[in-house]
Design a protein around this nucleic acid. Structure first.
Lengths: 343, 343
DNA sequence: TTGTAAGCGTTATCAA
DNA sequence: TTGATAACGCTTACAA
């Protein structure tokens, strides 16, 4: 048996109130100046008695505005995403929009599918934490004129509103901190850059910064998320190679920090003693891991909130100039980047 | 200027293909046996040329099925929720549904609002991580006949499909482990029980279990999430009171575990040395915190997946008997519940 | 094999 | 102040 929810429609209300649909519609849309007090009362009564809920689908169809915002998120299990989501969600609540959320699991195909899915649900705008889009998907987007804001990452060859981190500045902040604390050999560890500009930007900034300190060693490492053994080995080798120097690791995001911490654990290398460690993205457990892990905190919630605000502005006015908002990171110093006694 | 997405409709496609809407609709719905090869081709061409996307709103309005599932989640920043969400999301993907996600921030009012919001978007079913509902909200739900599945928690006085943890068994597993490891004074710490049955169930099971061991000390503590100072003090007092015994703390969920770990840090009490610690919910950093924290891992992803499957079953057949699925927790032993050398 | 027309639950236009 | 009535974009009898 199919469940048949007893749908009560505007016509039912109109009949129960002894009036026409138009008046009920007016009542619903707050055009009370066109309704006598008595009629208002009858309509109000009928609505509560029948427990009536206007059908947003029908409304959306008619008015062409669904009050729906699409969200495409690359990986919902990433703490970064969760906090951003929380900010977006709050902004939606404040503006009366509802989120249609899709998780692409870092897969490009899913991203494309979800994009058209959201479009088919007539979302009024979308916020995208991009994995990487192919030409065709981009062209479709261009055509569809759908208001869109990217968070955290841009898409090559696609100009679009975007809200994210000032990666060069953040990277400088992190690198300078390590240099100041007298680390002599730095290893920048990130996930495979692939199509994700954020990763290359941070790496690039790291190299630029290190180029000014030719006396220091700067190395880099790209590591697949599902290969802990390789990570262990690479770190171990780096450490062996430079054990006569003060070494530090710079993790390119929160996921990497977690993996690096695990690897160090297994290698019996103690951050804050044998090795410095600094990670992009603040983590709730950063102070609990060993002597604490120094992190670069992003204002994730604000980024999410700002992203949604930007989508709303764009929905309101498609002719606005393209906007890029870059937030600043904050360094939270903990035991993993300990000071040399002398310095 | 309002952005006016160049909406292309089924009529446009029909015109471009030199046919009627019906044939296009048939094509879209895979009724190809009723279409000549030539017409199929023309329609296919027109669709790609115009970059046409069927309007799901209109479809939903007409057919009465939106392929939309509502999700009400109590707190999206809780790792438990995130993993469950991930499972739900995967199940949606597998079944062709899309998620409308709402975060109630643990606020009862938001819960009620979102409930009717989801209804208004004609979702075909909902999955709810409940905060606590009042009479009126429940009555509305009963009336609306909306297929619904609760996760993790039940709602008092409301029979409904539910997927969650076997809390008594899980609690026994945890308690027995602590007893076996010779902890003599146990403190069960949870958030204020309020309307959340899960919390009381776990506490109840704890007390039942401890009642069988009158030689051991069993205490309990309810702590507001935003009051770290109080938590510190309570733990400190407990420890002072029983410092002649082997003490252990049992954290009622992942959020509490985090807070407890922080409090212990500030108190300079080391889990795995001065104090045992065991937490409900596995945490990605559990192995990294000090000597590691012993946890009770829930199959969160599976819980989410199963919840969505149950909603789908219920959508299909409203007359199914009410189902309660209880999953088992798994104990992951780490350094925080260390063995006594002798035993 | 194809197309016409009615209707899903709203809102907007127009007339009363 | 009110209320028919025609859309919105789609599916589905029913005709042809």
């Amino acid at each position: 048996m199919k469940s048949e929810a007893a749908r009560v429609t505007i016509s039912d209300v109109a009949r129960a109130a002894g009036t026409g649909k138009t008046s009920v519609s007016r009542y619903l849309n707050g055009e009370l100046n066109a309704l006598s007090a008595g009629l208002q009362q009858r309509i109000a009564d009928a609505i509560t008695r029948l427990n009536y809920q206007p059908n947003q689908m029908a409304r959306g169809l008619k008015r062409g505005r669904t009050r729906l915002i699409g969200l495409i998120i690359a990986d919902i299990t990433n703490p970064y995403s969760v906090n951003v989501l929380s900010g977006i969600e709050a902004a939606c609540r404040a503006s009366g929009f509802t989120l249609l959320m899709c998780n692409t699991n870092n897969e490009v195909d899913l991203e494309r599918n979800y994009l058209s899915l959201l479009r088919s649900y007539q979302v009024e705008g979308i916020v995208v934490h991009a994995v990487g889009m192919r030409e065709e998907a981009l062209n479709q987007l261009q055509q569809s004129q759908l208001p869109m804001v990217l968070i955290d990452r841009t898409i090559a060859g696609f100009t679009c509103d975007m809200v994210g981190l000032d990666n060069p500045a953040a990277t400088r902040l992190a690198t300078d901190h390590l240099l100041q604390r007298d680390y002599r050999a730095l290893l920048f560890i990130s996930e495979p850059a692939g199509t994700v500009n954020t990763r290359t930007e941070r790496l690039q900034a790291f190299r630029t910064q290190m180029a000014q300190h030719p006396d220091r060693v700067a190395e880099q490492l790209e590591i697949a998320p599902d290969n802990p053994a390789a990570l262990e080995q690479a770190i171990s080798e780096f450490y062996q190679r430079h054990r006569h120097l003060r070494c530090a690791l710079l993790a390119g995001n929160g996921t990497v920090t977690l993996q690096v911490a695990r690897a160090l654990r297994r290698l019996n290398l103690v951050w804050g003693e044998q090795l410095g460690l600094l990670g992009f993205d603040e983590l709730p457990w950063a102070e609990l891991a060993g002597s604490g892990i120094t992190t670069l905190q992003q204002p994730t919630w604000q980024i999410g909130y700002a992203a949604l605000e930007q989508v709303l502005r764009r929905i309101d006015d498609a002719t606005l100039p393209v906007s890029e908002q870059h937030f600043s990171a904050e360094l939270i110093v903990r035991g993993s980047t300990w000071k040399l006694p002398g310095s």
